[in-house]
Amino acid sequence: MDSSNLAELLRAVAEGKTAPEDAARSILQEPFRRTIRAQSSGEGTADDPGVCLDNHRSLRTGMGEVVFGQGKSRRQMEAAVAGLGESGEPVLVTRLDDEDGTWLLERFPGGEHWPAAKLFISKSPSKVTGSLAGPFGADKASWPNHGEIVVVTAGSSDIPVALEAVGTLRFLGLEPGLVPDVGVAGIHRLEPHLPALSAARLLIVAAGMEGALASVLAGLVSAPLIAVPTSVGYGASFGGLSALLAMLNACAPGVAVVNIDNGFGAAALAARLLSI
């Protein structure tokens, strides 16, 4: 059940078509009914159990459940996308490899797969203009560098994490900008982008290695900043742990930090902050 289904139910109560008691019962029982249905209809086995869906999440939090693709079987992903999509709303799947994304596109031909961001949507949301990738195609020179939210990367190797954030933001109806490859090894590259970065309401900064870019930017602009440490770097970066600790210890104030490689989490937090 999403907000449109709830509004329809309440209209039926207002028009006398549904008794208030029946509506209350439906609202209370729906989450459990959907969970039981998902478990019983998934035909899961001990080796491949079904999925339990949370169809009320959008009512509670404003954002529906998103399917984390990594580690799931194709059977589980298909059941999750089909079940969450019963309300007619689009479904987002993250962390997909190319083969699974192509397979999902065959199962849900109205969807869209963005391999660069490892994302899939079951159908284009009405609030998104154009494709999930939007203007962020192969021609990096044409990527917009401005928006209410601007995603910034220290290096080109951080771009996949940044694109996960970009795709999630577009799925949520936002039009972010993207400024790639402006890390501290060549900090002068930031200068042409400073007007757009200063005009943004919020920045998402993805950086690996020593993760210094987040602290640098927080000292240059007034917007709050969400730092995303990436697992990019040599051995002593410890798979992103070095960048994570550096960001947590940022000298400049106004920096919040999400988990390593969590572009999705940064985008979800950014969308919530802008909705306040």
Rank of each mutant, 00 (worst) to 15 (best):
N145K: 07
V258L: 06
T18A: 12
I36N: 05
L248Y: 00
P125Q: 01
R33W: 07
V184S: 10
G235E: 05
G240S: 05
C251S: 12
F68Q: 13
D97K: 08
A7Q: 10
Q76T: 11
P90F: 02
G50D: 04
A256H: 11
T45G: 15
G88Y: 03
P115S: 08
P49V: 11
L59E: 05
E210T: 14
G233N: 06
C52E: 10
R57P: 08
H188E: 12
L241Y: 09
G134N: 03
T94P: 12
V67N: 05
H113Y: 15
G263Q: 01
L190K: 05
L174Q: 10
A270P: 14
E89L: 09
D139H: 02
H56P: 02
V66T: 15
A250E: 03
I226W: 00
E112S: 14
R95W: 05
A7R: 11
F68S: 10
P176V: 05
W114N: 06
D261I: 03
G42D: 08
L194F: 11
S124T: 15
A246M: 12
G42W: 03
I27V: 15
T45S: 15
L274E: 04
A116Y: 00
K127M: 09
I204A: 05
P224I: 07
A207L: 09
A243C: 13
L105N: 07
G88C: 09
P31D: 02
A46G: 06
V81W: 05
M63W: 01
A223E: 00
F68M: 13
A117D: 02
I260M: 09
G233M: 04
V216H: 06
S275W: 01
A252R: 03
G134C: 07
A223W: 01
D261P: 12
G134H: 01
G137F: 09
K118W: 00
R11W: 04
A116M: 07
P195Q: 01
A250P: 12
A14K: 12
L119S: 06
N262D: 14
W143R: 06
A12E: 13
S87L: 08
G208Q: 02
A19G: 08
E65Q: 15
V67Y: 02
T61A: 04
D98S: 11
S4I: 11
V166G: 12
L10R: 14
G177M: 06
V216E: 03
G44Y: 01
Q39A: 14
A141W: 01
D181E: 04
R33H: 09
V67S: 08
S40Q: 12
A199Q: 05
G62C: 08
L273F: 13
G62A: 04
L9V: 14
H56M: 13
A185P: 06
L178Y: 00
R25K: 14
L190C: 09
L220S: 12
A24W: 11
M77E: 05
V179T: 05
L174P: 08
K123V: 08
A46W: 02
L169T: 11
S275K: 14
A250V: 10
V152R: 00
W103P: 14
H146N: 11
P180G: 06
G239S: 13
L163T: 07
E89C: 10
V179W: 00
S157T: 10
V161F: 03
H193I: 06
A266E: 03
G85D: 12
R33S: 11
D181G: 05
W114C: 09
I149C: 06
D54E: 13
L9D: 03
A80Q: 13
S215H: 04
